[in-house]
């Protein structure tokens, strides 16, 4: 059986909020290392990969592999019944029909319990190759979100170009064009504002801003975001979570001229 307790329901609320517009039905794959999720969007352009390690829970118990097939809009409805600071316990039997979510208020005696019916989801699992990215940009997540939002007003696509000069987000649309260039920046007083660019070779790729803006819904989960690029492979946008856990989004590039 599965029993996993999160100190704050907020984490799961935010994760589900961040991915629910991209993927609808998905398996939460539970085993003794934690809870993992991998799902593609309907158009097979983007891939979500989430890992909540067992250390992110306390306690965490999962005796055997359990796939919880859950509709994210149903899960959202139930998670709305939890306060951010509630303790959240997820429980399921070994071959479950339902998953049980329990919310406990930390400072009152309220205890809420909900069951969500599970679905059989036949999901294709993709092997994601280990990649040494040519460029990794670490920047404040709100800054990335703002760039995506601003450029979306002008165009459907953004080119991301990393050179030793910095990283340039540029777009070209009907009303004109725009570009934002960031250089490495280190602020001792305010490390959340740091911008780090690790570059082994220059990269230039074009991506859909609609998808990038969608990924940015995860901005509330982490102060900074890693944007990893290599020529001719999908972009990785990674939000690090506590206890070595993560929420990753992969986006296939736009190609041709």
């Amino acid at each position: 059986m599965l029993e996993a307790r999160l100190e704050q329901a907020e984490l799961l609320k935010k994760v589900v909020d961040a991915i629910k517009d991209l993927v609808q039905d998905c398996n939460f794959d539970c085993n003794d290392s934690g809870v993992a999720l991998q799902a593609m969007d309907n158009s097979h352009v983007a891939l979500v990969s989430m890992m909540l390690k067992s250390e992110a829970f306390s306690p965490f118990r999962c005796d055997r592999n359990i796939a919880l097939g859950i509709n994210l809009s149903s899960l959202t409805k139930v998670l709305r019944c939890a306060q951010n600071n509630d303790i959240l316990t997820v429980k399921a039997e070994d071959a479950p029909d339902v998953v049980n979510l329990m919310f406990e208020s930390s400072d009152s005696d309220r205890l809420s319990e909900y069951d969500i019916k599970l679905m059989d989801i036949d999901q294709e699992h993709l092997g994601i190759p280990e990649t040494e990215y040519a460029a990794t940009v670490t920047m404040p997540s709100p800054e990335f979100q703002r760039i995506c939002r601003d450029l979306s007003a002008l165009s459907e696509s953004v080119s991301i170009e990393c050179t030793k000069e910095g990283v340039k987000f540029a777009c070209n649309g009907d009303i004109g064009s725009g570009a934002v260039t960031l250089r490495s920046h280190s602020d001792v007083e305010n490390p959340d504002q740091n911008i780090k660019i690790d570059l082994t070779e220059p990269v230039a790729l074009t991506f859909s801003l609609k998808y990038l803006s969608n990924f940015c819904k995860a901005s509330g989960l982490a102060k900074s975001v890693n944007i990893c690029l290599s020529n001719e492979v999908p972009l990785l946008v990674e939000y690090g979570l506590a206890a070595n856990s993560y929420l990753r989004f992969y986006l296939a590039p736009k190609i041709g001229d």
Partner: peptide, 14 residues
């Protein structure tokens, strides 16, 4: 114009 590629052309089914 550029066209959108699919994620499945980069990552293979396991």
């Amino acid at each position: 114009a550029r066209h959108q590629t699919n994620i499945t052309s980069y990552f293979c089914p396991r």
